[in-house]
Design a protein around this nucleic acid. Structure first.
Lengths: 223, 223
DNA sequence: GATTTGGTTGGGCGGCCGGCCAACCGACGC
DNA sequence: GCGTCGGTTGGCCGGCCGCCCAACCAAATC
């Protein structure tokens, strides 16, 4: 052991610099396609210096992802603090999430380089992800409890639907596009909240249709 | 040039075997983290044989993705052939897409290894993707034209919303889960079609809320 | 101004990578 | 039987990879 195994100090601006450089490259080319030499060059430093703070490339990835999830949660909490109405909290959180996702590299690395996490690092990130998910589960649970949502909605699927849509935006959003992240978030929420079928031409008994869908909860196969 | 640049013959069962083996590994570990030796071993052959049919690893990736998109489109067309009602065609196509996505390796590679495509291969896949997107745009256009959808819906965002949700399923679906792919597709479509807000407690004038959302089309900033 | 401390330098090491190819094999036509 | 030829073999090559580390440096401490 030539150096302390678990250094007591907690991240500084220099670490941020390294992590930011790595995050940009990981997002652009992926973890596996990025070399430590690439990262060092992008950070304006020689490979050895990188190694001093992050002994392995995987350590760098883990640190970067952890910081990403923490910052994400921070943004979310800040965005909804002081707002009580559950559906509005949901809308504001979605805005914050999309804004964060599209303005930083780290959250996209978290999404798309998950495969590169192995062993201990993977387990550690799973804990972080669970914590992050719990936040959203709570938000949806509040909204459902408030009575604003249809009572027969599967909250898990709703969460996965919304998150898939939001996360997918990282793949197609471009800064020059016709809409801002906030507008996209609101538009998505508008579609999901009110539905896309024209009310005037919905099936005569919507309730029947919905009940048919929710009946699948007990697992009717598709033949 | 020791061998023909563009071999005239078109894929056989042997190619399928190679491509399938590669697809499984690419999906599990990613293109960059998979070695040609891995693929050869998985296909029960020596590296040289692989090289004989696919001179470079990138050629393998491209061939695999092309085949994936073609098969996908084939499934989609088959699923909706003979059905005229636009909204029903949409629902059936979503089912088919999700079933295909979750039962094969190739479509997931198409989704998550896009970054590894470079130069000519990338451009070629972009053409395939555009063709694939055109299919869905057509489906949505039909549905909107039929009058079943709210007239003020942004079809592009609706497509991105639905596709993000469907594609995201590749990340969380597990065969042992509580729902089949068809059930998931129907549930997603149900949520999007009818919305999640309880009708009894929607804002008094939904139209106003919707108009506010669609007004963003002209690009009102978020201040 | 000597010593300690925290961090950087720049090159080097072993190993594995993608790609290559001469020799080889076996099915088939003649 | 014999030549042809599509396809496979198994090992080789140059290069780059992640990781390591002895020397070095500058700011802080005494």
């Amino acid at each position: 052991m030539t150096k302390a195994k678990a250094s007591p100090k907690k991240a500084g601006p220099v670490d941020d610099h390294f992590l930011d450089a790595a995050a940009r490259l990981f997002r652009q080319k992926g973890f596996e396609a990025t070399t430590v030499r690439d990262i060092a060059r992008a950070a304006g430093v020689l490979p050895g210096s990188l190694h001093y703070r992050y002994p392995t490339k995987a350590d760098l990835l883990l640190a970067l992802m952890k910081r990403g999830v923490e910052a994400d949660l921070g943004c979310l909490r800040a965005a909804i603090s002081g707002v009580r109405e559950p559906v509005e909290r949901l809308r504001l959180a979605l805005r914050a999430r999309l804004r964060f996702l599209l303005s930083r590299d780290a959250p996209q690395v978290v999404l798309y380089d998950w495969r590169s996490l192995k062993g201990r690092a993977r387990e550690e990130m799973i804990r972080y992800r669970d914590q992050y998910e719990a936040f959203w589960k709570g938000l949806l649970y509040e909204a459902a409890g408030s009575g604003w949502l249809r009572p027969d909605i599967d909250l898990r699927l709703l969460r996965l639907l919304v998150f898939g849509a939001i996360n997918g935006a990282a793949l197609w959003y471009s800064r020059g596009g016709p809409r801002t992240p906030d507008e996209i978030a609101d538009a998505f929420w508008g579609l999901i909240a009110y539905g896309v079928l024209d009310e005037a031409r919905r099936p005569h008994d919507v309730d029947t249709a919905l009940r048919a869908l929710s009946a699948m909860e007990v697992g009717v196969g598709d033949g």
